[in-house]
C-alpha cells in the first residue's frame, strides 16, 4: 500500500480533473426534467425520435433531419415561438427516455396502442394508416389465411407486432408459431427479397416508402390488411398542460390547412 503516496494521488487527481472536464463539456442534454408542472412554458422542448424512420423522421442527403413529423413538430414550435431540439434515441428505449426526463415528446410515427397508453399520454391522432401485408410480386399468397405455415417477418418493437398479436391465433399459425422480428424495416424487406421471409407485415407509410425505393413492381400488397391505426405524440403523464397545449396547436394546424400542405409534401394522394 506504500505505492499510494503523493505521486499516485496526483495522478488520481489529474484523472478526476480529466473526467470532470469530459463531463463538463457534454452535459448539454439529459437535463430536461419536465417533472415539475411549473415549467410548462419552457423555451425549448426535446423531441425524441428514431432518425432512421423514413418518411416520418430521417436523414436527407446532407445528414439533416427531415420528414413529415419533423415538419409538423417545427410548425408547432413556430406557433409557440420557440424551437424544438431533436434528440435521436434508440427506439426500444423511447418510453424510458421520456419517463426519465431525457426527452419531452416521443414524436416519430408513434402508434397509439392500449399498452402504450399505460406508459405515456397520447396527443390526438394526427395520421391514420393501416398495417399492410406485403409479399413478392410473383408469390401466390393472397389472403390472411395464406399466412398459415409461412415465415412472416416485421420490425421488432413496432405496432405491426402488436397488430399481428391482436388477431387471435394468427401468430401461432405462422411457421414455428413465431413472428420473425428484425431491428428495422430495411432488414425486413431484405429478408423478403432474399426469399427467407414469405410475407411481411409493415406500416403503410413505411411500406410505401420502401417499395418506392426498391422498385414497386417487385412487390404485391395483399388486399386484406391488419386494421387501421393512428399515430400520436407521446407526452409524459406528469405533463398534462403540455399535452393540452400541443393538442390545441395540432387542431389549429389541421384547421387552417397547414397540415394538408405538410401532408402532400411527404405522401402521395392515395
Amino acid at each position: 500500500m506504500k505505492i499510494f503516496n503523493k505521486r499516485s494521488f496526483k495522478l488520481l487527481l489529474l484523472m478526476t480533473i480529466i473526467a470532470s472536464l469530459l463531463s463538463g463539456c457534454s452535459s448539454e442534454v439529459g437535463t430536461s426534467s419536465g417533472q415539475s408542472p411549473e415549467c410548462v412554458e419552457k423555451d425549448t422542448y426535446i423531441v425524441g425520435l428514431d432518425d432512421t424512420f423514413a418518411p416520418m423522421g430521417f436523414r436527407d442527403d446532407n445528414g439533416n433531419l427531415v420528414g413529415f413529423d419533423i415538419d409538423l413538430a417545427n410548425e408547432v414550435a413556430k406557433r409557440w415561438g420557440i424551437t424544438f431540439k431533436f434528440q435521436p434515441i434508440d427506439w426500444s428505449m423511447k418510453e424510458t427516455e421520456l419517463n426519465t426526463g431525457n426527452i419531452d415528446f416521443i414524436w416519430n410515427g408513434y402508434t397509439i396502442t392500449e399498452e402504450r397508453k399505460e406508459k405515456v399520454n397520447f396527443s390526438e391522432p394526427y395520421l391514420e394508416y393501416s398495417q399492410l401485408l406485403v409479399t413478392l410480386a410473383n408469390s401466390e399468397f393472397n389472403s390472411i389465411e395464406d399466412m398459415a405455415g409461412k415465415v412472416v417477418s416485421t420490425q421488432g418493437e413496432s405496432s405491426a407486432v402488436d397488430a399481428a398479436y391482436a388477431q387471435p391465433g394468427l401468430v401461432e399459425s405462422f411457421k414455428n408459431g413465431e413472428l420473425v422480428e428484425f431491428p428495422t424495416y430495411n432488414e425486413v424487406f431484405n429478408d423478403l427479397e432474399a426469399g427467407r421471409s414469405d410475407i411481411v407485415i409493415a406500416d403503410e407509410v413505411l411500406a410505401r416508402y420502401y417499395m418506392k425505393n426498391k422498385g414497386e413492381e417487385k412487390y404485391k400488397i395483399l388486399e386484406e390488411n391488419l386494421g387501421l391505426e393512428e399515430f400520436g405524440v407521446g407526452v409524459r403523464k406528469e405533463d398534462p398542460e403540455l399535452l393540452e397545449r400541443l393538442n390545441n396547436t395540432l387542431k389549429d394546424i389541421k384547421e387552417d390547412g397547414t397540415y394538408d400542405e405538410i401532408y402532400s409534401k411527404w405522401f402521395s394522394a392515395n
Binding site: 463531463s23 457534454s26 452535459s27 448539454e28 439529459g30 426534467s33
Partner: peptide, 10 residues
C-alpha cells in the same frame, strides 16, 4: 441527478 448521454457513455 442523472448523467448526460456522453457522461454516461464515458
Amino acid at each position: 441527478f442523472a448523467f448526460g448521454r456522453y457522461q454516461a457513455i464515458i
